[in-house]
Amino acid sequence: MARVTANGRGDAAPRAAVVELVSVYKAFVAGGTRQAKLALEDVSLSVPRGEFWSIIGPSGCGKSTILNLIAGLSAPTDGTVLYDGRVVRGVNTDVGYVTQDDNLLPWRTLQANVELALELRGVPAAQRAERSRELIGRVGLSGFERHYPAELSGGMRKRASIIRTLIYETPVILMDEPFGPLDAQTRLVLQDDLLRLWERSRRTILFVTHDLVEAIALSDRVVVMSAAPGRIKRVYDVGIPRPRDVFHIHGAPGFSLVYDRLWADISDEIAVSRRRRAGDAVEAPEAVES
């Protein structure tokens, strides 16, 4: 298994890993067929505290599956998932999860949505309002506190769903293609927002995306996965100095070098998965988790 830089500086991690996958396998059994299919094969990953990591790979290679394992929403078929040195069993409430759909509650106002996690933790209303007001202001949504999600644009809803996760200050945040369905301009602005929010607290982020430039612009490391069954192909050290300017990331020193090497890897994978899909029958959509 080739790694450009295995875990950054060699295999013995110098900084304590907060999220660690050790030789993880995950298999799903498709609904009627009783045929098992590997989604992840021998995935090992060790994410140090405070770093921003991206995971990219062709669709269906198991990126979301990795996040679900870390969040404890499903269990590995083999291998272990560790959080802060402990095996993850059941739902892991120490991580925040930003899903691809914004998943805001339609009957709650923007502010009530942002405060949801604090409400669940029994934080008094005054304190909740104070913290939500600050975050809402920081992403430029002031004035929309009383609006319902249906009255907000896609970009605004996305911002809301991000600060809804940031507000309760989990040490680790998982983000699954959060900017997927947005238009290019809004994406850039939101990437900038996200980087700025992150710079303030430097929490650990695992960010799934299919956008190469986005991954480079945001991350310390980029994990490239190979097509099904998902395996880790390489881990890249981005090395572009911070703070970064996402709007001009193309001009940043070292950008094209990383970009070219990443692109070479990914285009291989895309070719493989496309060839495979052309040969495959249509995959069963409703499948039962093993």
């Binding site: 969040a71 404890g72 929403l73 739902v91 892991n92 409430t93 991580v95 925040g96 999860y97 899903t99 998943n103 509650l105 949801l116 996690a117 669940l120 933790r121 309760y168």
Partner: peptide, 9 residues
């Protein structure tokens, strides 16, 4: 949505 809220605790 259920999963998001479960992860929220």
């Amino acid at each position: 949505m259920v999963n998001v809220m479960r992860v929220m605790g």
